[in-house]
Structure formats: C-alpha cells, structure tokens
C-alpha cells in the first residue's frame, strides 16, 4: 500500500528517504523510506534480523547509510537538519533520545547519577567552575538533581535513587533507561524493545508509561517491539520491516490484515496469507489484546 502524502510537512519528525545500509556484502537496510509525524507513537516491527535496530542506529548516527537521506526536526518548531554524518551526541542534542535493546545503563553509577548524566549534558558549567565550586555550578548541580528526581518519580523509581543501577530489578532498569533518555529533554524518543524480558504486569505499566510520556510531554515515540499486544495497544501507526526492506505501513488494524505481514511472520507466501485473510475475515492472526489486569482474587493468590 502507498502511504498518503502528509498534508503539513512541518509536522514530520523524521523524514527518511531511500536509505540503504550495507555491511560488506550484507544489506541491512534496503531502500527504506518512512515519515514519522509529530506526536505519534510509531512502531517498527519485523522478524529478527529485519533491520529494525539498524534503522535506529542510522537515525541516531551510530551507522552512516551508504545511500539516502534522513531529515530531522527534533523538537517542535525546529528547522529540518540532516542526520547523516552527525555524531550521536549531536543528534541527541537535536532532540533524539533512545534506549537500548540490551539494557545499557552505567552499572556502577547510582540510579540518580545515571539520569543526572543525561540531564547535565545541557548544562554549561565547566571543569574549572566545578573545581572551584562556583555558585552557578552549585546551582546547576542542585537543578540537575531536582530534575533527575522528578524524572525518576515520573517513571516510578522515586524511592530507588541511591541504589546502584546494576542492583535494580530488570523492569526497573528498563524504566531507568527511559528516565535517562527523557533527561536529555528529547522531542522524539526511540525505544528499542522496551518490554523484552518483562512480565505481563510490567508490560501493562510500560504501555501506560509510553502513552503517558507521549501524551503529557508531547514526545513522539518510535518503538521497536516484538510483543504484539503491547504494539497494538499503544501504537498509532506501524511500519513493518523484513529482510531490510519496508513491506507494510499503516494503522494497527490495517497491519493485522496485511497479507504480506502475515506471510513474513508465518513464513508462507503472500498469496496464501491473502487467501486465508479473505476466507476468515474475523480471524486475527496477531493477538492484539493486552491481558486484563489481574482480579483481586488472582492478586491475593500470588
């Protein structure tokens, strides 16, 4: 299907045009184009090795694609800049924050210090001011602590500030990573499989957190996730990658019925999948409902 051209291009956060990324002979991304709109939650799904994380790494400047261009309007009102060739930290300062598939916190720093690292990248005081303990440096230090605590409370870690990051539970580390990403005051947040390894309860909380970040902070979210329930419940739109190429794009409902997507996931040909879809229109091949919250009885049971 062909995506509708967007009416107002100023509302585009990422404008990706025909990027191709190769490692030696391996094509990781093949002529991928996409547009991400301001304020939406856009999910990127696809089987393992489809190129999702590569796309993230291109968007954050870790990899440089051989072809194509990527324009970024990080925060509302920014003028578009090209991402290609820019350093990761520069892109971060343009309003792009991310989390990692395998959690990459700073394990030997405390949770609050992890967030402070991100918050402080926007501060001014230099090493001399720090060594001499200048009043403005002290003020910045207090500000960053306050801001970091606020973020920690926001993701539900308010009590855990002085724990070492590595001593937090797995789900808490995931949320701490989100808090750290928010610390840089992004306009767009890239989440790489935030629900991996979490339990259903944590998944529900995460879905709620993602929607809340999107709603309250007006941060656009680009989400890679394997958990379809989570994706279908939070995403406004979905892009499907397979073998480095984009095979579909649309709303969750459209994606669920898309024969190419089903084929990619089931490994059958698109024609078979299309026939199935028309034969059984009520059949949703992808389970979309998040598990309901446990009842009180269940809760007391465990």
């Amino acid at each position: 299907m062909i995506p509708q051209p967007l009416a107002d291009t100023h509302d585009v956060v990422f404008d990706v045009e025909h990027i191709t990324l190769r490692f030696g002979g391996v094509v990781s991304l093949n002529d991928v184009s996409m547009q991400m709109r301001r304020g939406e939650i856009l999910a990127v799904i696809g089987p393992n090795g489809a190129g999702k994380t590569s796309l993230f790494n291109v968007l954050t400047g870790v990899y440089t694609p051989q072809e194509g261009r990527v324009l970024l309007r990080g925060r509302p009102g920014d003028s578009p800049v090209s991402v290609i060739g820019k350093k990761t930290h520069v892109i971060n300062r343009l309003g792009v924050a991310r989390t990692f598939q395998n959690i990459r916190l700073f394990p030997a720093l405390t949770a609050i210090e992890n967030v402070k690292v991100a918050v402080e990248t926007r501060q001014k005081a230099g090493p001399l001011a720090a060594m001499l303990g200048m009043p403005w440096q002290r003020k910045e230090e207090r500000d960053s602590t306050a801001a970091a605590y606020a973020l920690m409370r926001d993701v539900g870690l308010g009590e855990r500030g002085n724990e070492l990051a590595s001593s937090l539970a797995y789900g808490e580390q995931r949320r701490l990573e989100i808090a750290r990403a928010l610390g840089t005051n992004p306009g767009v947040l890239l989440l790489d499989e935030p629900a991996a390894g979490t339990n259903p309860q944590e998944k529900r909380e995460l879905a709620e957190l993602i929607s809340r970040i999107n709603r309250e902070r007006n941060i656009s979210v680009l989400l890679i996730e394997h958990d379809m329930k989570l994706v279908m419940s939070v995403a406004d739109r979905i892009i499907v990658l397979n073998f480095g190429g984009k095979i579909a794009e649309g709303t969750p409902e459209e994606i669920q019925r898309n024969p190419a997507v089903v084929a990619a996931y089931l490994g059958t040909s698109a024609e078979d999948a299309a026939r199935q879809a028309t034969d059984q229109p009520e059949l949703h091949l992808i389970d979309t409902q998040l598990e309901p919250p446990p009842t009180d009885e269940e809760r007391s049971g465990d």
């Binding site: 930290h89 924050a97 991310r98 990459r104 700073f106 210090e113 840089t184």
Partner: peptide, 15 residues
C-alpha cells in the same frame, strides 16, 4: 564514569 562504563550509551545520552 559514564564513558568508562559504556561509551555508546554515554553518547546516546548526549555526552
């Protein structure tokens, strides 16, 4: 400390 622990994550956090 962040760079020492994980340089990629530090860059991604804007350092």
């Amino acid at each position: 400390a962040a760079i020492r622990e994980d340089e990629v994550a530090a860059q991604a956090s804007g350092v």
